[in-house]
Design a protein around this nucleic acid. Structure first.
Length: 255
DNA sequence: ATGGTTGCCTCGCAA
């Protein structure tokens, strides 16, 4: 089972690239983030044409996550539990085959010093609590998505410049580490330990051309999923194309 | 050099 995650930064704009990549990479499950549209505007028919079922939670202009799967997803939940007042479309989770898979768009949190940052920390706290529940079920689980967290210095081109950013400051990294320490494996890192492997490059200042990026999209594997990990990779090819997202897909193969 | 770009029912905001 090949499971991928990709922040597409508008599914409408990215649809030609997305369809081309699905045909080439043939993932069984794809978690999308920042679809930036209502469910009624989601290109369900085009994706069905390539054999993908879609489960999603949409929102106008911002956020929005989807889960695409060749097998029909079951037992879908459309929000991260723990706060019924949170209306931001950032979480969808379902069972595909014998895996539980979540598509996650964790809040960015910038600028630090506004209410955006405590919202990010609270969101990670809710994810931590929910992850504990998921682990108790002992179903092989993959929490995939844009975490907006740079885990280590080697995951950013200029750690000093990013030290106080919401994606990298110590409080953020500690919260992420605490989530991982519940027993998850960073699926990409388990396969490729080399530094400076990025999943995001800012559109500005020639960051892509200079390979000055961030590793902020992650596949967190529960112990039973990690036991089945065969390989994982970042596919940089979509980032090089015209009309690219600022993120590129990462995927893992689980036997 | 506080630059630069993309996407949003755009004229500011989020990333």
């Amino acid at each position: 089972m090949r499971i991928a995650t990709w922040n597409v930064n508008s599914v409408k704009v990215r649809l030609p690239l997305l369809l081309a990549w699905l045909e080439e990479a043939k993932p069984d499950v794809v978690c999308l983030q920042e679809i930036k549209c209502l469910a009624s505007d989601f290109p369900e028919l085009e994706l069905k044409g390539l054999g993908y079922h879609a489960e999603l939670v949409g929102q106008k202009s911002y956020n929005g996550v989807a889960l695409l799967a060749k097998e029909r997803p079951r037992d879908v939940i459309y929000a991260l539990p723990g706060d019924d007042t949170d209306t931001q479309a950032r979480y969808v989770e379902a069972t595909v085959g014998d895996f539980r898979v979540a598509s996650i768009y964790l809040p960015n949190g910038n600028p630090v010093g506004t209410d955006k940052y405590p919202y990010k920390l609270e969101w990670i706290g809710r994810l931590h609590a929910h992850a504990e529940t998921l682990l108790e079920a002992e179903t092989p689980t993959v929490l995939a998505g844009d975490y907006n967290v740079i885990p280590e210095e080697e995951d950013v081109y200029d750690p000093a410049a990013w030290r106080e950013d919401a994606l990298f400051r110590m409080e953020t990294r500690r919260a992420f580490r605490s989530l991982v320490n519940l027993g998850f494996t960073d699926g990409f890192r388990a396969i490729d330990p080399s530094p400076h492997r990025y999943t995001f490059w800012d559109y500005q200042a020639g960051r892509w051309q200079r390979d000055e990026g961030l590793r902020i999209d992650h596949l967190l594997l529960s112990p039973r999923a990690a036991d089945r990990l065969v390989t994982a990779a970042i596919d940089k090819s979509p980032r090089a194309k015209d009309k690219a997202s600022d993120h590129t897909p990462i995927w893992c193969e689980l036997r």
